[in-house]
Design a protein around this nucleic acid. Sequence first.
DNA 1: CACTTGATCTCAATCGTTTTCGCCGATCGT
DNA 2: ACGATCGGCGAAAACGATTGAGATCAAGTG
Lengths: 336, 336
Amino acid sequence: MVSLKDISVRCGVSVATVSKALNGHKDVSAATREKLLKAAKEMGYFPNSQARALKTNRTHNLGVMFLDEAGSGLTHEFFAKLLNSFKTKAESLGYDITFISRSMGKNKMSTYEHCKYRNVDGVIIACTDFTSQDVYEVVNGDIPIVTIDHIFDCRTAVMSNNEKGMQKLIEYVASMGHTQIGYIQGNKSSVADKRLAGFCKACINRGINVNNDWIVSGDYHNPDKTYELTKKLLSQEDRPTCLFMPDDYSAIGGYNAIKDLGMSIPEDISVVGYDGIAYSQLISPRLTTYAQDTAKIGEIAAAQLIELIENPQTTFTEVITVEGTLVQGSSVAKIN
Amino acid sequence: MVSLKDISVRCGVSVATVSKALNGHKDVSAATREKLLKAAKEMGYFPNSQARALKTNRTHNLGVMFLDEAGSGLTHEFFAKLLNSFKTKAESLGYDITFISRSMGKNKMSTYEHCKYRNVDGVIIACTDFTSQDVYEVVNGDIPIVTIDHIFDCRTAVMSNNEKGMQKLIEYVASMGHTQIGYIQGNKSSVADKRLAGFCKACINRGINVNNDWIVSGDYHNPDKTYELTKKLLSQEDRPTCLFMPDDYSAIGGYNAIKDLGMSIPEDISVVGYDGIAYSQLISPRLTTYAQDTAKIGEIAAAQLIELIENPQTTFTEVITVEGTLVQGSSVAKIN
DNA sequence: CACTTGATCTCAATCGTTTTCGCCGATCGT
DNA sequence: ACGATCGGCGAAAACGATTGAGATCAAGTG
């Protein structure tokens, strides 16, 4: 690889001058700057990122902390798309993406230690158990972080507007005449809390009675569990006319349960999802759902994180909520 | 961060000795080694990866080259799972994963230049247009690489046994009595070629007539296109009794087309997919498909790549094929 | 006893950058 | 014309680790 030294000998100047010229410092004349930039381009120079990092303590590398145990992180469409837009934005700003995890080779290290070892400039935390020791360490460390879908004090978070999403969905199904609404929740988490709150609030605003027997707790991203719960819920004498699923992916389990019960959507039961993943519009009937703007969430998260890194003084911590859109499928029937 | 120097002053030895002790060199006594290891642990020492990389030219970092244009790379379950197992294996061997792409901030660089800039020890190439200039540069460079699902001369490749997969599927549908088989191919690629070859070969072996009118070229991972092609293919007077889809995801489009034609699966038409993604067993009827062992492919790719990196002399280039398994869904009817 | 040997440790150079400080010559103000 | 100022440049010290070439000392050898 061609180094600053190579350029310096070719142009008859010192390495210091080359470095300054390439980094846009002012104490180098326009003439020599031109010459050096030209030479650098001709010789195909790229800075050695390690050497630079060693000196500046900036790697231009962002760590992503994803759940890896179940391995479901990346196969989760929401997170895959999120990561993708995060990566795109980060790259456009000159940052690369490295996965950060707990285990590294033979010598154990925590995720935080891993960050320190790799010297990442910032970390995005998503799709993780936010109560874990690993997250705690990172959140309380001195590395800039942005969290997705979870709020920590004094840390900036990006999340979709869960309350509003539920509100929009409730408004829609209410406008279709539904007043008997069931809800299979996702895993206990701040997202689940927010959605439940939005659900209840919107129902109350609409004068819809919230029946606690119809609100059960399940899992996100778990069609099997949702299958079971759907079956149980709809086997009761007294059952809702519309059922909210934890998310679109789980909804597939709900669809199957309903089919196995000999019922059909939306004639016998209306179904609503959450997320707006591609599959939701490929199954039939197309699912009525609330599409999160994953692309925007990822992009904003990247922009925020880099802002935090490059302007540490303006350390305004924010909670940014991103609006989604109601996707009106064919899984909700009009009743009266 | 605590450095070698910190340990050296605390223990009253030189940095050189500390370095050697921690790296297992032999010219350090057992006693001092113990002492130094203990101190390192107590002080929470981790080597500075940049400094080490600068000196040794080894970053313990692996580049992954995924398609990013369409952004479909990560949302493709096959690749998401692949990446996941690749990452897990690599991490267990002490390597981290960094995404490598074309655009980096303001200064343009090719993917190969990006690799050089980040000094990755090796690269895995997957889900990319293998004919692109970017891939060409990397493949002809001096960085160890492993490709997925594509073979370059003198480079090791890992791929699932596409021919065998098709053969197994053909054998299965033939055993169910089918002799009129259609096939919607995926994008022109070596994988598509191999599958077509396997398809034809297996048909011939079975004495099944291959009808060229029933073999059309479509896209991978494209339900819409597959919808169109399925509709066109099945609208003909003379039509197959069994239809092979490009992949499981596309098969959803096929399912919808068949439904819209007023036909049902498998009574009117049998359907076969490829990949074995989670959804294929969630839709109804469950899809008969050939599950690729993505976990194994990723793991082997990581192991091979690291082998290539750490033992450059044993530079045996191999093509490793990974067996999959037939998944017998309910989408193929028995006929006579 | 002088000399080799081996074990253990230190010195110092090095990787490629960045950055502070100082030098030099030229221009400027008075 | 003389000191002050300034623009342009270089020397050198870092950053934290690795590594081969010595240095040191005790033990072994003839």
